[in-house]
Amino acid sequence: MAAHPGGLTAVEPSVRTRTGARTGPGAPTVSVRGLIRGFGPKGVLNGVDLDIAPGEFVALLGPSGCGKSTLLRALAGLDHDVKGSGVINVPDRVSVVFQDSRLLPWDTVLGNVTLGLRDHDADTKARRALAEVGLAGREKSWPHELSGGEQQRVALARSLVREPQLLLADEPFGALDALTRIKMHGLLRELVSAHRPAVLLVTHDVDEAIALSDRIVVLDSGLVATVRTVAPEIGSAVDAAGHEALRRDLLTALGVDVNAASH
C-alpha cells in the first residue's frame, strides 16, 4: 500500500496482522509500512515505515502532538475508529504500558497483574513478577494504597508477566518525579534484559531515550524524520565520548535551538 505524504487523499482499510509464525531468523518483530492515520481532514501519520528487530529497544521521540501516541495505539490495535491505511505486522503477544498505571481500582494488586492471564499458575507467575519489580508482599493491597511509582511498577509487572514479544510503552514514567524515574530506568533495563522483548518506548525525554534504547526514531510531520543508533557505551554513561553530540543532534532534530537551550 502506498504512502500518501500529502495527507489522507485515499482512505483504504488498514491491515493489521498478528504474525507469531513469521518470526523466523532475520524477520523483524514489528514491521510497519506506509502507515497513515488522521483525525478529521489533516493527517497525523503520513506514511510511517518502521521495523523493530526481536529484542531491540526503540525509543520514539517527537514534539508534542506529532503522533507518537497515535503510532503506538495503532500498533496496539487500539485505534478502531481512526481513519487511515497501511500495513502493520505485530507478534502475538503484545503488552502495553500506559502513562497512567491504569490499574483497575476494584481489583487487588495481584488481581490486576493476573488480569486476562489464562495459565493455571497465573498467581505464582504474578507473585514472581511483583517480586521482580520490588513489590513482594503487596499482593493484597488496593491500587489506591500504593504510591504513584509503585502503581507504575505494578503496571510493569502486569505487562511482563505475559512474556510479551513486544512491549509498547507510552511515556510510562511521564508522571513520575526525576528520582523515581531514574530508578525506574534501571528497573526497566533489568527487566528488558531478563525477558528480551522488543520494545517501543514513546518519550519526550532525550536523555531517557539515550539511556534506554538501542535505536532512536524521531517523528516529525507524521514521518520518520531521523533515526540514530545508540552505541552501548554511549547509552550506559553520560560522560562517554559521543554522548553529548548525539544529544545535541537529537535536540536539533526535535527543533530545539541547542545553543539557546544550553546553559
Binding site: 487500539l78 502495553v96 486476562g116 492471564l117
Partner: peptide
Amino acid sequence: ELAQTVGL
C-alpha cells in the same frame, strides 16, 4: 482499552 490489551 486495558481489557483489550491484556486480551480479555
